[in-house]
């Protein structure tokens, strides 16, 4: 499907479940509600017209106002691509593990858990991935994270 066909298809088949966001001006970016994530993701994967079988990338974003979890998915047979995100607050952020849909999400979720402090529900293994096992200095990718030797570059 071309980008416009895909947009129209999503609009008619995912009414109220995927909302087009303003930030996706260049490429469409959708929002999915956290408690609807697994169902919609499964549908995106299993829909015969969409067949999103490949999770390219996922990760956390701290926008200074809220936390987000971005997902970039693609189809290896239909050759189209889609982005969506789940928006979370700073107050005990948590998102359902997407591993049952795309097993490749496993390490991305572990990474997000340690770097952003976003709790992953129903994940089988949340050992630290990139950080040392005895790391006790918080979640370094958060914008408010600080350390004695961490210097912020001034705005030019």
């Amino acid at each position: 499907m071309t980008r416009d066909e895909l947009k129209a298809y999503i609009e008619s088949n995912f009414v109220g479940r995927m909302t087009l966001l303003e930030s996706g001006k260049v490429e469409p970016m959708y929002e999915i509600k956290a408690d609807d994530l697994i169902e919609v993701a499964t549908k995106l994967r299993d829909d015969l017209e969409l067949k999103f079988d490949f999770l390219c990338n996922m990760g956390g974003v701290d926008t200074r106002e809220r936390l987000e979890v971005i997902y970039n998915i693609a189809s290896t047979s239909k050759l189209h691509r889609l982005d969506f995100k789940v928006i979370l607050g700073y107050d005990s952020p948590a998102v359902e593990s997407i591993c049952p849909v795309w097993p490749g999400a496993n390490w991305y979720e572990r990474e997000m858990y340690e770097l952003y402090g976003i709790d992953i529900l129903n994940h089988n293994d949340l050992r630290p991935l990139l950080l040392p096992e005895d790391w006790d200095q918080g979640h370094p990718m958060r914008k408010d994270w600080d350390a004695p030797d961490f210097v912020r570059m001034p705005e030019l």
Partner: peptide
């Protein structure tokens, strides 16, 4: 010199 792309997001591969 001060390259500032407009606010937004994109994934490229």
């Amino acid at each position: 010199a001060k390259f500032k792309p407009p606010a937004g997001e994109v994934y490229v591969r």
